[in-house]
């Protein structure tokens, strides 16, 4: 029943709008010129694998934000393969890198509770300031509406000036009711209202917007934990999903963000936004490898359906061509 945000299974691929891969590739074209494109340029015409080549590969991995640990592991894998004489051609090396990155990204879903009959599917969206939480919620709401679900938005960002208005504009545009109070009110109270309203109206999906907060602010993290407790008390089993929104331009600090938010709330997924710039989003490779939190969606543009379910093989295919 709750399949609308699920990853596509094998065989469902035909249902995708035509040219999904090519659109993804288009959105990721900058990523491509980043990682795979540069790797191809580097390996083109190369006959042998030597120290210098490995160093150049390392540079490409680093400049894609893969981070020290993931890059080291990749390079060590390659070096081991070269030592065993398995990787004797650049083309094989490329394949080995691609396979290893795919493995890093292929994280199993974190098990979470499901709503009972007549209960809404409650999704809490969190993240640091400016990653695109509100826009992402608009896109998620739009997509759920397109699938015939009833949706409400909860304006849980009561801190930032005009954050409520921003969500309201999106609510009007995509035809979703926004549950809100005035700026400065207690976000937990707004969330409580939202859930009450959703239960009364038998709404299918509740998307909770929260104020952007740096993960190092312990008082703000406590506020999130409080919101979480209020949700649990009102509707046991909820929130069914807690999604962390990450900006693809972020560097190694994204690991720290994922770690601390995960510890506080228990994330069920990550949404990676702003992949349409020149940022490579390589940081998710590092996060998936280390934290084993699955990527749920990637944002590849401004349009409502530019938020795409994430699929590791597709993603790797798109960046490796």
């Amino acid at each position: 029943m709750w399949t609308f945000y699920r990853k596509k299974e094998k065989g469902e691929e035909q249902a995708e709008p035509k040219g999904f891969l090519s659109r993804l590739r288009e959105g990721l074209s900058k990523t491509r010129t980043g990682l795979a494109g540069r790797l191809d340029n580097l390996l083109y015409g190369k006959k042998q694998i030597d120290e210098k080549l490995l160093e150049q590969i390392e540079e490409i991995l680093f400049t894609s934000d893969l981070g020290v640990a993931a890059t080291r592991e990749l390079i060590e894998t390659v070096q081991a393969g070269v030592a065993r004489k398995e990787l004797d051609q650049p083309e094989k090396l490329r394949k080995a890198l691609k396979e290893q990155i795919r493995q890093f990204l292929d994280v199993v879903d974190i098990p979470h509770s499901m709503p009972g009959p007549g209960e809404p599917y409650v999704i809490m969206v969190i993240g640091v300031n400016g990653v695109g939480k509100t826009t992402t919620i608009a896109k998620l709401g739009y997509q759920a509406r397109e699938q015939g679900k009833t949706v409400i938005f909860v304006a849980g960002d009561t801190f930032r000036a005009a954050a409520i208005e921003q969500l309201q504009v999106w609510g009007d545009r995509v035809g979703v009711e926004v549950i809100k109070q005035k700026q400065g009110s207690d976000p937990s109270a707004v969330v409580f209202d939202g859930l009450s309203s959703a239960l009364a109206k038998r709404i299918d999906v509740v998307l909770i917007d929260t104020a952007g907060r740096l993960h190092t602010k312990s008082n703000l993290m406590e506020e999130l934990e409080k919101i979480n407790r209020v949700i649990k008390r009102k509707l046991p089993g909820a929130p069914h999903e807690v999604w962390l929104v990450l900006d693809a331009t972020t560097g190694q600090n994204a690991v720290s963000q994922a770690e601390i938010f995960h510890k506080a709330l228990g994330l069920t997924g990550i949404i990676l936004t702003k992949l349409d710039g020149t940022a490579k989003g390589g940081i998710v490779v590092g996060i998936c490898r280390q934290m084993k939190i699955p990527i749920k969606f990637i944002g590849i543009g401004e349009k409502m359906d530019d938020l795409r379910p994430f699929n590791a093989p597709d993603f790797v295919d798109a960046i490796f061509g």
Binding site: V128, G130, T249, T250, G251, A254, G277, T278, I283
Partner: peptide, 12 residues
């Protein structure tokens, strides 16, 4: 510019 920006900071 965001202080948390990664490698892409130079391009931007």
């Amino acid at each position: 510019a965001d202080a948390m920006t990664g490698q892409d900071a130079v391009n931007v």
